[in-house]
């Protein structure tokens, strides 16, 4: 299963590197989102505002990334071919791994754009931000992969995915926004331990649930 999942990740990376479809869209979209915030709020922003701007950018760019995760599988009966291999667990884990990694890359890019546009020193807080992002991405990837697989062949997929993912992910979004506020105010990992435990709990429950329901959705 692990071998197949890694093969799926390699395939998705190769497709993304050759076409630059999601990467290009997200790169431009993130610049525009942060530019709009910078123009509206000015460069002098508080830690709480910075956390909120980052969380919103992560969320909207992340949904675009998740939406594209089953694009290649919907063509030429690729999904049916993969399902004919017996177990479907490798599809879930492979997709989760790819989406979580892709989300992290997107978020690092957003942080860079944010640091430039707002002239905000994010590098000093890199460890706290990274730990929060990892906790957030696991839930985001698991929930996103299940809903994306469910809506893969539907019309208006982007709109529906936003409508479904946002209310379900509201708790980790509150957690990462509050955690970022503490980190960007100079707080250490100890001060965000409650939020990290919260994200970890959410990750465990939602990855488990997503794994169980993925098979049901594909049926």
């Amino acid at each position: 299963m692990i071998k197949r999942a890694i093969l799926l990740v390699k395939k998705d990376i190769a497709i993304e590197l050759s076409q630059f479809r999601a990467v290009g869209t997200i790169a431009i979209m993130s610049i525009l989102i942060i530019l709009i915030f910078a123009l509206a709020m000015g460069q002098a922003i508080s830690a709480a505002q910075a956390g909120a701007v980052l969380a919103i950018s992560f969320l909207f760019c992340g949904i675009v990334a998740v939406e594209r995760s089953f694009d290649s599988e919907t063509q030429n009966g690729a999904m049916d071919a993969m399902r004919s291999m017996g177990q479907t667990d490798f599809i879930f884990w492979g997709k989760c791994l790819f989406v979580a990694g892709f989300l992290l890359a997107v978020e690092i890019w957003i942080c860079l754009v944010f640091a430039v546009m707002f002239n905000f020193d994010l590098f000093s807080f890199w460890l706290g931000i990274l730990v929060l992002l990892c906790g957030f991405n696991i839930s985001f990837a698991a929930v996103g992969v299940v809903f994306s697989a469910m809506l893969a062949k539907c019309r208006g997929k982007g709109f529906l995915l936003t409508l479904l993912v946002l209310p379900v992910l509201i708790s980790p979004v509150i957690a990462i926004t509050s955690g970022l506020k503490v980190v960007l105010s100079g707080g250490g990992l100890g001060e965000i331990s409650n939020w990290l435990k919260f994200l970890a709990g959410f990750d465990v429950v939602f990855v488990g649930l997503a794994w169980i329901s993925f098979e049901k959705v594909l049926e």
Partner: peptide
Amino acid sequence: IKRAGSAVFAVFGFLTMPFVLFINRWA
């Protein structure tokens, strides 16, 4: 897809609630 998908969504939605309750303690 409609039946299975909406059932999965309802379960996900319901399980979000305890987490919102926890936020009250920590936020």
